[in-house]
Nucleic acid binder design. Structure first.
Length: 466
RNA sequence: GUCUCCUUCGUCUAGCGGUUAGGACGCCGCCCUUUCACGGCGGAAACAGGGGUUCAAUUCCCCUAGGAGAUGCCA
């Protein structure tokens, strides 16, 4: 039997983090089992579906590297097929027309709520011999067993049983003749030859209904795996406030696709003590058995940590390809500097956005007074003079190297009986404009003699100017 | 309300009858250090509660509490 899974988002918004993880688990499962990962856009609700959302989902999956193994499938393309199935069900007596109106239904629902019982469509038209009212357009309902129980062996949740009394004769076709989600999903899953349905926990209840639809149609029932949802940091349902952002937002915030994937992968799934691993390893290791049953919370701190670690490991050229365009206008000299200094920036950045701020001083000269107060405080009364003297000794370095720069400056400090910090800190402040910089000898070396001298003497010049 | 599911450090989790309950993030301390980081070392921190079953329960069963989802002519 071939393994086929699908990720089935409805295009009513961006691809949020929970959806991304569902897609990821489907993907990993497919690849692990040498099966196919398919994506079906559930756009039967025309009113709420948008093209932008479709694009956002595609781009999101693309960015994450979770592209499907076949073309995207649109549920709305199969509406005729969905209807055909209902016709057959009607013909074989497994479904029936129901003339109860939405108004009547909601009245009954209210009544049930008052009595504290679960509302269930009371089979009015199921076996009715009455002549249907002419002015009511009927819906089509499926006949579900009234007694007994339904058991699903969920690959994540284990054996889940529900009493059939709880199950409703749910609607297959609306009164306007359009198929409902419940119908479309099942027909499409059959059509796509889906072997495993891996989706969010919120669909577990639907699984029982769909189970009977599969049976009524007369096909093998796919395996189900309902993965727990992701909550916000406060344990509440994910909202925009805490992370239910589109994946493109994470991209904008400077997270790496691989880091986000690694993070998502570890949310609700584990492989022993492994925390950081490649996608290839994830594919090798992935097993639904190791998906936990309990919901998990979004933890940005951990994501950040993971992202930082991915940046550290990342290939320099690859990283540059992301960083450089983020500057917009940038000249070759600045690019060269960043290339040279990239390694020590790496250990300081948690996101790629961070990265650009951290190496901004390679691109732009700091302007005085420094915007960062802390850094400005490093510049003392005597700093301009010291810096000018430093500039003077630097000027005489013949062989420009980090080592020679260090030797020269240290000698200068020694000769004048300065404290190291007294000299080093103002240097850092004036040439980098920040307290979060790599070692000063490194950045002086990268900046070059001329540039360093100009930056160092800026202060004393300002002084004489004023 | 009813149904279904869930419950190990603050968070993500390992554990699958006998462990000093392990790891990771975060937090704290120390070391390294010219800043900020990286790194290294160490620390505090958990089996929701109550009953069973068993020689032995974090692990199996039941109850309670708490949380979540579902209960649509939405998906």
């Amino acid at each position: 039997m071939s393994i086929n899974v699908r990720f089935a988002p409805s295009p009513t918004g961006y691809l949020h983090i929970g959806g991304a993880r569902t897609a990821l688990f489907n993907y990993l499962f497919a690849k692990h089992n040498k099966g196919n990962f398919l994506v079906r856009i559930e756009d039967t609700d025309k009113a709420r579906s948008t093209q932008e959302a479709v694009n956002a989902i595609k781009q999101g999956l693309d960015w994450l590297g979770l592209s499907p193994d076949s073309e995207y499938i649109f549920q709305s393309d199969n509406i005729e097929k969905h209807k055909e199935v209902v016709k057959k069900l009607l013909d074989s007596g497994k479904a029936y027309y129901c003339y109860t109106t939405p108004e009547e239904l909601s009245q009954m629902r209210e009544e049930a709520q008052k009595q504290g019982i679960q509302f269930k469509y009371p089979h009015i038209w199921r076996d009715s011999k009455e002549t249907p009212p002419k002015d009511v357009k009927p819906v089509v309902r499926i006949k579900l067993p009234k007694t007994g129980e339904t058991v699903i062996n969920d690959l994540v949740q284990g054996q889940v049983t529900v009493a059939n009394e709880q199950l409703d004769d749910f609607i297959l076709l609306r009164s306007d003749g359009s198929p409902t989600y419940m119908l479309s999903v099942v027909v499409d899953d059959i059509d796509m030859n889906i072997s495993h349905i891996i989706r969010g926990d919120d669909h577990l209840n639907n699984a029982f209904r769909q189970y009977h639809l599969f049976k009524a149609i007369g096909v093998d029932i796919p395996k189900f795996a309902h993965i727990p949802l992701i909550y916000g940091e406060d344990g509440k349902k994910l909202s925009k406030r805490h992370g239910a952002l589109g994946v493109e937002q994470y991209q904008k915030m400077g997270y790496l696709a691989d880091a986000l994937k690694n993070y998502l992968c570890r949310l609700g799934w584990s492989h022993g003590d492994n925390e950081i691993f490649t996608q290839q390893q994830a594919i090798e290791w992935f097993d639904l058995k190791n998906v936990g049953k309990s919901p998990s919370r979004m933890d940005f701190k951990k994501l950040e940590n993971l992202n930082a670690s991915y940046i550290k490991q990342m290939d320099n050229q690859e990283l540059l390809n992301i960083i450089i365009p983020m500057f917009g206008k940038i000249d070759d000299i600045a690019i060269k500097r960043i290339e040279k200094g990239i390694d020590s920036i790496k250990s300081r950045a948690t996101t790629v956005n961070d990265f650009t701020t951290l190496c901004d001083f390679y691109v732009n000269r700091p302007s005085f007074p420094l915007s960062d107060e802390k850094t400005q405080k490093l510049i003392k009364q005597n700093s301009p003079d010291i810096l000018e003297n430093v500039a003077n000794v630097i000027k005489d370095i013949d062989e420009w190297s980090e080592q020679n720069i260090e030797n020269t400056i240290k000698l200068f400090i020694e000769k004048n009986n300065f404290k190291f910090a007294e000299v080093a800190q103002p240097i850092r402040a004036t040439i980098s404009g920040t307290t979060k910089s790599p070692g000063i000898f490194e950045i002086i070396n990268i900046l070059g003699k001329q540039e360093t001298i100009e930056r160092l003497t800026k202060l004393s010049k300002n002084k004489t100017d004023s």
